[in-house]
Design a protein around this nucleic acid. Sequence first.
RNA 1: GGCGCGUUCGUCUAGUGGCUUAGGACGCUGCCCUCUCAAGGCAGAGAUCACGGGUUCGAAUCCCGUACGCGCUACCA
Length: 484
Amino acid sequence: MISDRVRVRFAPSPTGYLHVGGLRTALYNYLFAKKNNGSFILRIEDTDRARFVEGAVENLIDTLKWSGLTIDEGPGNEGAYGPYTQSERLSIYQEQTQKLIDSGNAYYCFCSKQRLEEMREERKEQGAQPVYDKHCLHLSKDQIKSNIDSGLPYVIRLNVKPGEKIYVNDLIRGNIEFDSSTVDDQVLMKSDGYPTYHLANVVDDHLMKITHVIRGEEWLPSTPKHVLLYKFFGWEIPGFAHLPLLLNPDRTKLSKRQGDVAVEDYRSKGYLKEALINFVALLGWNAGDDREFYYLSELVENFSLERVNKAGAVFNLEKLDWLNAEHLRAKDNADLLKLLRNELKINPEVEDDFTDEYLVQVIEAMRERVKFVKEIVDTGIYFFTPPVNYDEASVAKNWKSDSAVNLSLLNEKIAELENPVKDDFENALRHAAVELSTGAGKIIHPLRIALSGVSGGPGVFDIAYILGKEECMRRIKRAIDKLG
RNA sequence: GGCGCGUUCGUCUAGUGGCUUAGGACGCUGCCCUCUCAAGGCAGAGAUCACGGGUUCGAAUCCCGUACGCGCUACCA
């Protein structure tokens, strides 16, 4: 047994940002770990120096932290099996590779890029698998030594014996059979001394006592290489679970070209982390019932690898928006107040000099009407600054020739009110309507325009109450002046 | 081309041989509520379960084949 305790890892490469597909992979790893009282480990796979992006690791960790997926071991949070950054583990890979060379399961290769290309081309034409032809496998010790001494660049390759069956037992897909003849003599060590993913992930997973490898489906075809490596090393094979892909609307692998793929994009657009996590969890997994709303802790309780789907799932924004609204409404005023303050802070159109009491009233008026916190500011802008102009369609529909007269009387009534509450505004308006022998609606709609500039939103008396007597009177007067 | 994986409403999905005239959710449409917009409630449209063969008294569910889609096929991960 590898370990009694479940240990899983999320192993991204720091190429810029956290992809939403990566977030889901991280999430499923996290859920599986927590459900089984295990550890969730972050490992940075930075073995490709050409693709390294400055600041990417920090960004990755920051985004993961924002999402609430706390790691038990990882860079900056060293456990017993570090370091957790592969570029800091080079000597380990070298040492392990030497074992493979000594046992004949790996070998030096000095082939040039050009020869490799020509060989692959030829094989493809013949309709054969474009795998390496083992040209360097039979080099003598002396030849190898003299090649190395003369400074010839080389790589170390995996020595795959053809004609054997390799079985991968996937926790989601069941038993999968591969023919070793279709498995390439994969490069294990690159000529720059860095390992490839295949070598590094097997070595690290073993050394870090990883019990389950939960990763994207794109890794399924290379899993036989990994299984072979475990065998050659004489190590126990961990459980594999290959997750279905996240898809673009055209059902290709989710990519940048067809929309936002970075978690930080969604974060900056104002999506709640609760909603993103909830949404992404449901893309490929469900508990077997009709439940759709989950908090992270509830996902942990209910998660199981057995219930992960096999087919890819389209990343559908409409449902994400709905879930965002659901989570927003589930939040209490204190949480929303914090979020609203943040929005006000970054909005150049408004000055945040409002009291908590005022903002909480706005929140209660708006929470049922928005999907995003920032919408409270965007569509409820009149709570923060008086309307500068009035929505044309609304004016055309509801501002009639008698509106100015009606509102003038209303303003007189409001002037008489002392510390009015919501009902006082309503009573004032209804009294005005009676005096004018008109329907309340004839005044309500113009009042709404005067106060907010638009025709939608919270109840007009709620708006009036929140704005307060003086501000209402100012806005009514202004509307009469401007709209006549 | 080769290898692998997959295929239930537009989308996410339930369904593991009879409970299924295939259920839910998002979105869409209509109605109710109503000062507006939402929210909420109700109703509706929407899937011959990719196709073709089997197995079985009975198949979305098991088997085989085909098609289509996707992934992989690097000294990238």
